[in-house]
Design a protein around this nucleic acid. Structure first.
Lengths: 235, 235
DNA sequence: ACAAAAGTGTTCAAGATACACCCATGG
DNA sequence: CCATGGGTGTATCTTGAACACTTTTGT
């Protein structure tokens, strides 16, 4: 029984993680891209990625890669999809586990572009990307829309304190439609997820808009509220 | 530039697909399991799986594996998650791309258990499974519930002709609750996805229940209706 | 005083839930 | 003729959509 150290006759492959990193600048959704640092396709636009090391899992690898680029930890991150077409990498068979991340765009800016020539680009105006990275981005965008319609994940793209108009701009950017502000505000507040602050953001209007913070407790509790929502499901 | 044939200094891993195969026997949700055919852990309960071959992608590998076990093609199948913990396989580093499949349990029965000692087991009473296969099953069950609340995927578990009471039993099995049959029927029919047949199923009642078929055209069109449903999303 | 964005309330329509009776048939 | 499961309708409530005016304040 014991003593087997290899499965024989099977071929082994490289395994990489690639990160689709979203940010929101107040106007439109952004994507964090880098210029690839090695051949082939060196200096071409690419997602940030890296090979999975022998001692790490996928989440660990993705977090490491994200940290290396942004300096951030504890970022919202989610496995998107595993890409494995035999010819997706021209060099050798490489499978990619794609993760998408939502970050507060203000949280780093600083160390940007140093080592990797990273840049935020508008999701609409993304340049040509290497390999199947564009397909990853498309899928990530779809999943973001899908998921944000059900779960309160878009808060991950905002700073700790934000206003309702800011939040509305974010939702409008994600779905590329406009919302009625009265209905939007009522709906958002009815979730009970927001705590009104005493101070205002005076940058985007004379009157100023009240800041809100996320109620972390309720956020964690209600994140899957959707599932309790199953009284009479069906379509 | 050209001529690179390997990425140097990286370690390569085995890549496998594992299939979580669901069926419905009219009473409860079932899982199709096999007894593993090779060492180590030979003859232990396991999901059906196989290594990804050099010339195939993940979908191809999963379809091949499923076909080998069931003889079926064109089955509903969806990538669930990539599992990559460094120690998930005691023999050597192996990453697993898990797929879940929904099949009409009647469609094969026949060749069952020949080569693989396959068996349908109730989801509740599943035996201990090797490696992290139980975690895969749990996740698949969650995703099934999640997705079936939004998309009409459960039809994939039924034969081409089915009755409303059968469908209701299926939903009740998936969510482990009971529905009011009047509301259930109205809701289901209001989707416009079902076409009433002239004949009845007389097996489970004296009066008989009308058969329905899925309107494939509308099924494909409305599968993502959820996304059109985004007029005013938010949570 | 006025421009510009924030904030708020009401009406109406649609969808969801709760609930009870009659129907068809095989035995 | 009766037991069993199939099939349908109505009243009520909740939720979402449409829609317009007042408030604040910097200039």
């Amino acid at each position: 029984m014991a003593g087997i150290t290899r499965y024989s006759g099977q071929s082994r492959m490289l395994v990489a993680v690639d990160c689709i990193i979203f940010g929101f600048d107040g106007q439109s959704l952004k994507l964090l891209l880098i210029k690839r640092g090695f051949e082939p396709l060196k200096n071409k636009w690419s997602l940030m990625g890296g090979f999975v090391q022998p001692n790490e899992g996928f989440e660990g690898a993705a977090a490491r890669v994200l940290h290396k680029l942004t300096g951030l930890e504890g970022v919202y991150m989610e496995q998107l999809f595993a890409f494995g077409a035999p010819d997706r990498d021209p060099v050798e068979r490489t499978v990619a586990i794609a993760y998408f991340a939502l970050i507060d765009i203000n949280k780093f800016q600083v160390q940007l572009s140093d080592e990797y020539h990273a840049e935020w680009v508008s999701l609409n105006k993304a340049p040509h990307l290497i390999l199947d990275h564009m397909a990853m981005v498309k899928m990530a965008q779809e999943k973001l829309r899908y998921k944000a319609a059900i779960h309160p994940i878009l808060f991950e793209l905002l700073p700790p304190k934000f206003t309702i108009p800011q939040l509305q701009l974010l939702y409008e950017a994600v779905y590329d439609i406009t919302f009625d502000k009265r209905n939007f505000s009522r709906k958002i507040l009815s979730t009970g997820l927001l705590i009104k602050q005493k101070d205002k953001d005076k940058l985007s209007s004379k009157r100023g808009a009240f800041y809100f913070k996320l109620d972390k407790r309720k956020y964690n509790a209600k994140f899957n509220a959707f599932l309790n929502f199953v009284t009479n499901p069906v379509i």
